[in-house]
Each structure stands twice: as C-alpha cells, then as structure tokens.
C-alpha cells in the first residue's frame, strides 16, 4: 500500500523513534498511534480476516472495530490504541491452527 502522508504544513512532531513489526524496522514520531504510524509507513495489511483470510487494516480508528489488532508483549491489542515508543516490538497475528483431533 502507498504510504499515507503525514500533514506537514505548520506541524512539528516529536523526535523520531525506531520500532519493529515482524522484523521490519520502521521510524515514526514518538507517541504517534501505531495505527497511524503503520499507515504512514505504507503497511497495508495489518491482519487477515480470521474466517476469510483476506487482508484487513484499520477501519474505525477509535478502538471499536478490532480490525487493527496486533500483538505486543504477548498481548493482543488495537494498534489504534497504542502509541509508538522506541524499540517497541510488534507482531502481526498469525492465522489459527486447527484443533487437534
């Protein structure tokens, strides 16, 4: 996906920090929401629809739709409700394994 532009005119942002998603290093202003940072970085697919397997990304941006769910420190959390911080490790969710017989 193309990167989403950060509005520049008259805007100053916090210093940039580096974080990691699935091993990819990305930079974003400290304190930017992870959802916005991923959009700005052009990360299209944040997860796959759990039943249809199709790519999904941020949709509501207010923490309700759950489409931006990622894993940080072992917890599943909405990317639109997390702020980027230096060294943050983010993993995208993996598809479910089927139940063992």
């Amino acid at each position: 996906m193309q990167h989403r532009p950060r509005i520049q005119k008259g805007v100053s942002r916090a210093a940039t920090v580096r974080f990691v998603i699935d091993g990819i290093e990305l930079d974003a202003p400290a304190g930017e929401s992870l959802a916005a940072a991923l959009m700005a970085a052009g990360i299209g697919t944040i997860r796959h629809g759990p039943m249809d397997g199709q790519p999904r990304s941020v949709f509501c941006l207010i923490g309700l739709c759950q489409e931006c769910l990622v894993e940080i420190d072992g917890m599943q959390i909405e990317a639109c409700r997390v702020n980027v911080s230096a060294g943050m490790q983010v993993n995208r969710l993996r598809p479910m394994d089927p139940i063992k017989p």
Binding site: P50, I99, K100
Partner: peptide, 26 residues
C-alpha cells in the same frame, strides 16, 4: 477473543466450578 491454540481438551476443576475449552475458531 480468538487466540493461538493454548489447550485441546476440556479443562475442569475438582469442585466442578470450572469448565474451559478452546473452540476450533480459537
């Protein structure tokens, strides 16, 4: 919510005050 597989059986407690299982959808 759906999560990675953490259990396969029905887990209970001696008193019967717990039943827990992970469904196929996680």
């Amino acid at each position: 919510e759906r999560g990675p597989r953490i259990m396969n059986t029905v887990v209970g407690h001696a008193t019967g005050l717990l039943t827990m299982k992970q469904k196929t959808n996680g």
